[in-house]
Write a protein that binds this DNA or RNA. Sequence first.
DNA 1: GTATCGATGTCTACATTGCCTGCATCGATG
DNA 2: CATCGATGCAGGCAATGTAGACATCGATAC
Lengths: 111, 111
Amino acid sequence: MSPTYPGEFEQMVLLAILRLEDNAFALSVLRELDKQAGRRVSRGALYKTLERLDEKGLVEWEVEETTPGRGGHPRRRFSVTPTGVRALRTSRDALHRLWHGLEDMLGEPNP
Amino acid sequence: MSPTYPGEFEQMVLLAILRLEDNAFALSVLRELDKQAGRRVSRGALYKTLERLDEKGLVEWEVEETTPGRGGHPRRRFSVTPTGVRALRTSRDALHRLWHGLEDMLGEPNP
DNA sequence: GTATCGATGTCTACATTGCCTGCATCGATG
DNA sequence: CATCGATGCAGGCAATGTAGACATCGATAC
């Protein structure tokens, strides 16, 4: 049972969900990833990732009480589980330690 | 033309090489990853990753002038190419923007 | 001088992630 | 009723992550 770390994209999805708080529906996540990280992927790609994160217990969701006046599938509101938050912290800390001290070569983060 | 971003582990390997400067031989990278990021992988895993980073032009290497008195294969000294540095910066910036503002939930980095 | 060790590198194979296209659902709108 | 819009799901291939076995060749132990 080796740890198995969240991949690069998985991390981004988790972060996007956290930022969206109550508004983390799949398509909003897609927009957030584009807006904040310049990362554009297809819906299918995102859903697959969400499905995997769910299987790993890093995210969970509930269906939204259907807003009167919209059809199709009821949408799901995602949230990051405590396990997910922990995984995120671990990844961040590891990267942070590796980055630390390289500011000269890499420059400061570009906001 | 798809960008294709460095994966989670690939980023760590690139960073480890940068930190080691002139001392970036495969096995030192392995130790650096363990020490700084707590990430332990087999040699095979690392070599595969280095090979892929090389194919993508993110790292390059030269064989070391053989130190008198050590046998086996001559070891390779790796370095990150300018392209590699750029890729690293891009990934960092994207993650940085996503992290920004979430300090309350995630806490400050753990040094 | 032979067996082994130590530090490297390579090859093969498989598991996990990343990512896309295409298809289905179902109110609202024309 | 045809279509659109916002969703979600299935299937499948490509890229990444990871391990384990095997090869090389000085140095050192016996």
